[in-house]
Write a protein that binds this DNA or RNA. Structure first.
Length: 677
RNA sequence: GGGCGAGUAGCUCAAUUGGAUAGAGCACCGGCCUUCUAAGCCGGGGGUUGUGGGUUCGAUUCCCGCCUCGCCUACCA
């Protein structure tokens, strides 16, 4: 609603600029003034035009205001300060129409997007870093879907990598297990209710240490690791079977963990199929044909197929930039020395690197490879089926891949390889696809030294001096996702038990779970993407202040009001129709009411911004502010005892609109709103 | 060496992407449960936005230099 009025006002101003100054297509910046007293919108456009028009800003602002006359939906336009143009909404009609409709406007161009997130190596338990990844990704999926886009959710599984080999080495050589005894072990773990991913968490750390524990043995152990990896890649042997068995069991555990916080997937593409279906061969042909790859004949990369590194001199992206800038005299493409900095895609022994496989995979994502996976059903959700890639699959399956836009939720450390994949796409001439390839980058979750000590880890003095310490699966250093969720659920459950003994066991379970998920998801979403989260249990287990439970609590308060009023939010909003509430929306004592409506009306604007910037934190912050505005309103206006019937209708509708916008904002953040708490 | 990111209140983070008096939460101090749920609310203290310049009506935001911190930069896989 706020967004709609903003667009209308901007269009009016553009029209005025055209007729007054013959200026076309000027972008009109509209923002909210620092104080409500200045109005709901402000534009500094007069400042920007002052130089071009050789007129004082205030004079320009005057002319624009005069030319605009009256704008529908607005009470007044005025100039302020040295040249701001402030606009005041017609509050009565704004509230009327926002109460009546909460539609998210259909997108100008609906897209078929593919979001990839989670992508945990299937060799150990998920940790808090993976939670941030999955929560960011899942929230972004919800935002895209809310805006009317079609989204496929993928969780890429690197099931043939060296990390999986490490766990297999541990099972076979540290634990002396065979295929049969690994199967037994898994049954035992299942019977005892133990988690295989937890078991492997410790085993993986042990193996990593074991490799270098004895310098004399190190080379042999390294070779063992490599042989194991090759056996897994080749397939059709016991080693590969063990890898398959364990990695699949761990994968299932990861899906269960993520389901605890309401995260689901459509497809699990695996590296094993990318390998066995020879995706790379097709990509290699394209890359050679277009000259993206060339065979290095000199220097340290002699005998390798290499690619210009993204961002390096002569890479496509830089060429485009220089083309759009001032004309640069063409430099003849001489290559006096080999490009030592080039990225190796195919090694001199003929094997392909990770980036190579990733290029092939991304060609598939855009439907440009000319080959598809086969698919099998893998995991069932309440109303969705999760599929997994296969060499031979089920005859009937949904269509995957061929997306128009992709979002890869991968931490910022991977920005270099991601840039190389994009560079390859661009080099192949797929500029449109490259432009719609988003590395949805975020910073890691690290532990504060205090938290690490609490958990009983040895922390070196220099690490203790740092603000945070990076988690490491290899060292077994970190906080497991399930452990954190368990703690959250235990804490919320204890709280719910003491507050609501009248509820049934199942109700208390459900409430505690909803609050725990709210706390966790909000915690991961309140930080902007490129801020490192220094994890601490004190902050993560907090339910006060800027937290998920605070938002849920605001909803619960609105629910309580309607319960006592014997009415519903829908009725309260409908009751506003035809009632003139304008007198109650301004003047002393009314600003708090209007603030709630204005904030609530911004929800779709925030949805828009979050998608444009790929930054879910903005919506999280917005929902918090709406809850704060409501708390302020709640204190100042007692609804149920209000005696003026018209005013009471407005107050009830204010609670209703808060509830409506909070509940859907929370839903987009993947957070439920309990009945009581 | 090169690339990316960061430096804002005691701590953890924001700042509508160049706008009006830089805001929240935590922590601390004081107050509010016999009117709709106190997981709440109100009040208070707390800032030379790392630093030096530049661009302009206007800079936490953009440009350059410097300082500090983190990550990335293997024919490992």
């Amino acid at each position: 609603m706020y967004l709609r009025q903003q667009k209308q006002l901007a269009e009016r101003i553009r029209a005025a600029l055209r007729s007054l100054y013959q200026i076309a297509d000027e972008t009109v910046v509209l923002e909210q003034p620092p104080e409500l007293a200045f109005g709901e919108y402000a534009t500094p456009i007069a400042f920007e035009l002052a130089r071009r028009l050789r007129k004082p800003p205030r004079k320009i602002a005057e002319e624009i205001v005069a030319a605009l006359g009256s704008v529908p939906g607005f009470a007044s336009l005025e100039l302020a300060g040295a040249g701001y143009i402030n606009a005041r909404l017609d509050r009565g009609s704004f509230v009327q129409s926002f109460a009546a409709s909460a539609e998210v406007p259909a997108p100008d161009r609906p897209i078929h997007a593919l979001v990839e997130h989670t992508s945990i190596n299937p060799n150990k338990a998920a940790h808090i870093g993976h939670l941030r990844n999955a929560i960011l990704g899942d929230t972004f999926v919800r935002l895209l879907r809310a805006a009317g886009h079609k989204v496929d959710v993928q969780n890429y599984i690197d099931n043939t990598g060296v990390q999986v080999a490490d766990v297999v080495v541990g099972l076979m050589h540290l634990e002396d297990l065979t295929l049969a005894s690994v199967e037994e072990l898994m049954d035992e773990l299942a019977e005892d209710g133990e988690r295989i991913d937890f078991y492997c968490w410790d085993l993986y750390a042990r193996v990593s240490q074991w490799y270098d524990a004895d310098p004399a043995e190190a080379p042999a152990r390294r070779k063992l690791r490599l042989d194991t990896l090759h056996a897994i890649e080749a397939g059709g042997n016991d080693t590969a079977h063990i890898a398959e068995l364990v990695s699949t069991a761990i994968l299932r555990r990861h899906l269960e963990t993520m389901l605890r916080i309401d995260i689901e997937y459509d497809l699990l593409p695996r590296e094993s199929e990318i390998l066995h279906l020879h995706f790379w061969d097709l990509a290699f042909e394209q890359l050679k044909a277009k000259g993206v790859l060339y065979l290095e004949t000199e220097g340290r990369n002699k005998g390798c197929w290499v690619m210009k590194r993204a961002g390096s001199e002569g890479s496509t992206s830089l060429e485009e930039e220089s083309r759009s800038g001032s004309p640069v005299p063409p430099v003849p493409p001489v290559r006096p020395a080999p490009d030592e900095d080039a990225k190796v895609i195919v090694r001199s022994n003929g094997t392909v690197t990770y980036v190579g496989k990733d290029i092939a995979y991304h060609l598939w994502k855009f439907g440009l490879l000319g080959r598809d996976f086969a698919y099998r059903r893998f995991f069932s959700y309440r109303d969705r089926e999760c599929w997994i890639s296969a060499v031979t699959g089920e005859p009937d399956h949904p269509h995957f891949g061929g997306a128009q836009a992709i979002y890869n939720v991968i931490d910022s450390r991977q920005s270099d390889p991601q840039a190389n994949v994009i560079e390859a796409l661009r080099g192949l001439g797929y500029t449109e696809q490259a432009a719609h390839y988003t590395h949805f980058s975020y910073e890691m979750v690290a532990l504060t030294p205090r938290c690490a000590l609490e958990l009983g880890y040895d922390v070196s003095p220099e690490d203790q001096a740092r603000p945070y310490i990076e988690v490491s699966g290899r060292k077994g250093f970190g906080v497991k996702a399930d452990d954190l969720i368990d703690k959250l659920v235990a804490a919320t459950r204890a709280e719910v038990d003491s507050r609501h003994p009248e509820l049934s066991e199942a109700e208390r379970d459900a409430t505690a779970h909803a609050i725990a998920v709210g706390a966790l998801r909000y915690f991961m979403l309140r930080f902007t993407r490129n801020s490192v989260i220094a994890f601490d249990f004190k902050d993560a287990l907090s339910f006060e202040g800027e937290t998920g439970p605070y938002l849920q609590y605001a909803v619960v308060r609105t629910r309580s009001i309607f319960r006592k009023a014997g009415s519903t939010p829908e009725e309260a909003l409908a009751a506003l129709s035809g009632v003139d509430v304008a007198p109650y929306l301004s003047g002393p004592g009314a600003e708090g009411i209007w603030e709630v409506w204005l904030r609530a009306a911004k929800t779709t604007l925030l949805l828009d911004q979050c998608i444009q910037t790929a930054e879910p934190a903005y919506l999280a912050k917005h929902a918090f502010q709406l809850a704060q505005d409501f708390s302020n309103f709640y204190r100042l206006h007692h609804i149920l005892s209000e005696e003026d019937p018209v005013r009471k209708k407005l107050l009830l509708a204010t609670a209703a609109v808060t509830q409506r916008e909070l509940i859907r904002s929370l839903a987009w953040l993947g957070i439920g709103a309990p009945e009581v708490m």
